[in-house]
Design a protein around this nucleic acid. Structure first.
Length: 835
RNA sequence: GCGAGCGUGGUGGAAUUGGUAGACACGCUGGUCUUAGGAACCAGUGCCUCCGGUGUAAGGGUUCGAGUCCCUUCGCUCGCACCA
């Protein structure tokens, strides 16, 4: 068999597409709204490591889908660009002295070349990079709009600080108390920040999710992150002073069970209310707490700690005197930083009360409060006017009661915090503001944008919480745009997420020098019809971008409330790893495989094959370049789609890749056969029409794996014949073209066409031709298959039943039995219920 | 702990509304061709004691019929995590 010359073919067509700008797209008004589609990939951060196999997975899926849509007559916008600000390039600069711009652009060129080698149909004329000043001019411009709307503020607050990246982090960037980027333990640190008021948009971000075509799990993650809860703020007067403590609770109905209060150690009233004899203990506790990292606080979660302040508060519903404690299980950042403790009905309070021997009063029946807190619904007891009410009723009643007496108010709280929008680093967009001694903070006039990053030699962060820009005198020194006096430029830069908050809008009109995007282009394409990317951005990028978009919408700058109408997460590509008995993993190159058994070379220990994330340390990272070189881009693309369902994570197997490669070789092999215009055999025509139907349906639904399986079935059938029937081969070539575009073009040309295949019409199937004339019907007795028979399709129920009882096997097995019931499903089965 | 999802051959995975479990592919076995094959082609391949039985994590339920629906349990993955 001839090996197909993928290398030659792929180069040829990539060159053709590039030279002819085949996939350049215009805002052609002759396409009505429903014949336009904006298909977007999450653009990559151009790391020095280059593309890994995960990138092409999403990109291939969208490419297939775009090519399919074009063949269906849709005007498709499919751009690509680079998220090119970020710490790795800057860290590299600190180490080597190479300017991040140099490394970044070198990496971009490498990425672009790699992406192009896969034959994707991007409109490269729209490429954007977030680090270019033409781009970040508009990032800064949008920031100014936010600032002017009062959505950005400066603050000196304790934030998550990564001691390795030497910068502050947003809450979203901290995972398990560690920096999401480098894995270092995060510290608390007071630093000057710029912060965006994302909390102002909490409700809009929540409501907006409703109508989006996103997975439930992703929506759940966002809802979870926003963390809206309804409850009440309640005021507790202190016994001895005029001060009062305000608490937030979602269970005002349990107020009669509140037996003590707890303040966060950082609460502003702590100092004031601490009595003389408790002073030493309280101060020591606060000191200890402040020295603990967030991580340590969480790790000690099970073991509650705390100190009594010496003061008492008055429970507003029954006048009881209750002690006020401090404990780090109460967070200063949530609610009011203080709680009323109801140990009978809150597990944390229960643990605390048990440890410190505080009273536990049951106010809802239904649990055993001597064993644990009862948080379910039940009937109120010991609760005065709430007695005999259920949970919901009592909550409403209590809120009314409190509001009437001005003791509390219905309140909504969010877990979502404002967005720390600041990096104390060099390689990011400078924030376009000026600090003037007399005018305060003054925005840079829009006509002075962009505020360009100055050239520097020293990229090292000051480490004192200011960015390296603070050391650049000619950058910092400026005149106040308002009064003209000496002023200082803001030196904090924007976080990496800034550029990706709006890149999908810049693609629409990337060269526009007067506006971030023209009204016409925005109106022509938005919203994004399909956005594909990894789950790792579920709350970060996707929440931030939605936030910015909603602001732009409120400013009348974009036409839709939500940017990404439909969003699909690709599954992660994992890899096999090898595990010892003690669950530790062995790098792939230290493992010997023998007939499905795996042993560790060094020790001879038997290993179990497991699935793990690809990682450098396990040496199981796959390099797409090598695969493409060896098998071709078409094989590589197709294998990534064939591995399994698009949205599900699945392990990479190079053996599987060779299977797909074998398939493409077989396809090629058919083209080398005698081409004929003869009528093909009926059974082949049938397979073709079934294939068109299945491939159309599955491509439409992003079910690429089953579409490919069907094409394999088709080829397996065709392979049994000696000839290549044009009548079959033309439609099949059209079907495979989105999947293996280079081969598709080449085969189309071989069929004698002078136009390229990319914009040909997608083939249609004839329903009648997909139907089988004969069906195999199963004969069951009591649900068990006993026999089968071939019948003409569409045979009636009566006929079917009659035929079943003529079947020898059925006759012998039903002999002497009572036939209770017969179920006939035409073209499928006959089930006889007999006793 | 809370939220979401998933458990199907040796492996990746297929299975419209509940209707023949295991499509397609890898691997394996046998064969053809070949100087050779880690190429290609053809055939076979869930398991068992192979007549027949059995089988979709385990147990139970609904149904004529359950991988699919319901309940319980176990296991795995992801996200959040003292959020009051």
């Amino acid at each position: 068999m001839s090996k197909y010359p993928f290398n030659e073919i792929e180069k040829k067509w990539q060159k053709h597409w590039e030279e002819n700008e085949t996939f350049k797209v215009k805002e052609d008004p002759s396409f009505p709204k429903e014949k336009r589609a904006y298909i977007l990939d999450m653009f990559p951060y151009p790391s020095g490591a280059g593309l890994h196999v995960g990138h092409p997975e999403g990109y291939t899926a969208t490419d297939i889908y775009c090519r399919y849509l074009r063949m269906k007559g849709i005007n498709v916008l499919h751009p690509m660009g680079f998220d090119s600000f970020g710490l790795p390039a800057e860290n590299y600069a600190i180490k080597t002295g190479t300017h991040p711009k140099v490394t970044t652009e070198k990496n971009i060129n490498h990425f672009r070349k790699q992406i192009k080698s896969l034959g994707f149909s991007y409109d490269w004329s729209r490429e954007v990079s977030t680090h270019s000043s033409e781009y970040y001019k508009w990032t800064q411009w949008i920031f100014l709009q936010l600032y002017k709307k009062g959505l950005a503020y400066e603050a000196e607050t304790p934030i998550n600080w990564c001691p390795d990246c030497l910068t502050g982090l947003a809450n979203e960037e901290v995972k398990d108390g560690r920096c999401d980027r480098c894995g270092h333990q995060v510290e608390r640190r007071n630093t000057r920040q710029w912060i965006l008021k994302i909390t102002d948009y909490a409700d809009k971000l929540l409501e907006g999710l409703e109508d989006l075509d996103w997975s439930d799990s992703l929506k759940a993650m966002q809802r979870n992150w926003i963390g809206r809860s309804e409850g009440a703020n309640v005021e507790f007067k202190l016994e001895k002073t005029d001060d009062s403590i305000e608490v937030y609770t979602t269970r005002p109905d349990t107020l009669f069970g509140a037996t003590y209060m707890v303040l966060a150690p950082e609460h502003s009233l702590v100092e004031k209310i601490t009595t003389a004899d408790q002073k030493d203990a309280v101060e020591k506790y606060i000191r200890d707490a402040s020295m603990k990292s967030d991580m340590e606080r969480t790790e000690l979660a099970k073991d509650k700690s705390g100190v009594f302040t010496g003061s008492y508060a008055i429970n507003p519903v029954n006048g009881d005197k209750i002690p006020v404690w401090i404990s780090d299980y109460v967070l200063t950042t949530y609610g009011t930083g203080a709680i009323m403790a109801v140990p009978a009905h809150d597990q944390r309070d229960w643990e605390f009360a048990t440890k410190f021997k505080l009273p536990i009063i049951e106010v809802l029946k239904g649990g055993d409060i001597t064993a644990e807190a009862f948080t379910g619904d039940g009937t109120h007891i010991n609760s005065g006017f709430l007695d005999n009410m259920g949970k919901e009723e009592a909550i409403d009643y209590m809120i009314n009661w409190l509001e009437e007496r001005k003791l509390g108010t219905k309140t909504v709280n969010y877990k979502l915090r404002d967005w720390i929008f600041a990096r104390q680093r060099y390689w990011g967009e400078p924030i376009p503001l000026v600090h003037c001694p007399s005018c305060g903070i003054v925005p840079v006039p829009e006509d002075q944008l962009p505020i360009a990053l100055p050239e520097v030699d020293d990229f090292k962060p000051a480490g004192n919480g200011e960015s390296p820009l603070a050391k650049v005198d000619e950058f910092v020194r400026c005149k106040c745009p308002e009064c003209g006096e000496d002023a200082k430029r803001e030196t904090i830069t924007m976080p990496q997420w800034a550029g990706s908050c709006w890149y999908y809008l810049r693609y629409l009109d990337p060269k526009n020098e007067n506006r971030f995007v023209s009204k016409e282009a925005e109106d022509y394409w938005m919203p994004v019809d399909l956005y594909v990317g990894g789950t790792e951005h579920a709350v970060l990028h996707l929440l931030y971008a939605r936030f910015w978009h909603k602001i732009l919408f409120d400013l009348g700058l974009v036409s839709h409330k939500e940017p990404f109408q439909r969003l699909v997460n690709q599954g992660m590509i994992t890899a096999y790893a090898y595990q010892r008995k003690n669950k530790s993993l062995v790098p792939t190159d230290e493992v010997k495989e023998d007939d499905g058994n795996y042993t560790e070379i060094a020790t001879g220990e038997k290993l179990e094959q497991v699935i793990a994330k690809m990682s450098k340390s396990l040496k199981n990272v796959e390099n797409p370049d090598i695969m493409i070189d060896q098998y071709g881009a078409d094989s590589f693309r197709m294998y990534e789609m064939f591995m399994g369902p698009f949205q599900v994570s699945k392990p990479w197997s190079t053996k599987g890749l060779s299977g797909v490669h074998r398939f493409l070789n077989r396809v090629w092999n058919v083209t080398t056969r005698e081409m004929t215009d003869e009528k093909p055999p009926a059974e082949l025509t049938k397979v073709l029409h079934k294939t068109i139907k299945k491939v159309s349906h599955d491509t439409d639904g992003l079910e690429f794996n089953t579409a490919i399986a069907q094409m394999m079935i088709f080829i397996n059938e065709v392979f049994k014949h000696d000839k290549c029937y044009r009548e079959l081969w033309e439609p099949f070539t059209l079907l495979i073209a989105p999947y293996a575009p280079h081969m598709g073009e080449e085969m189309w040309q071989m069929l004698g066409h002078s136009e390229i295949i990319a914009f040909e019409d997608w083939p249609a199937w004839i329903e009648e031709l997909t139907l089988d004339d004969e069906k195999e019907v199963v004969l069951q007795i009591n649900g068990k298959v006993r026999s089968k028979m071939i019948i003409a399709a569409g045979t009636s129920r009566e006929e079917l039943e009659k035929m079943a009882f003529e079947n020898e096997k059925i006759i012998s097995l039903t002999e002497g039995k009572n036939i209770i019931k017969v179920i006939c499903v035409p073209d499928k089965l006959v089930n006889i219920v007999a006793k």
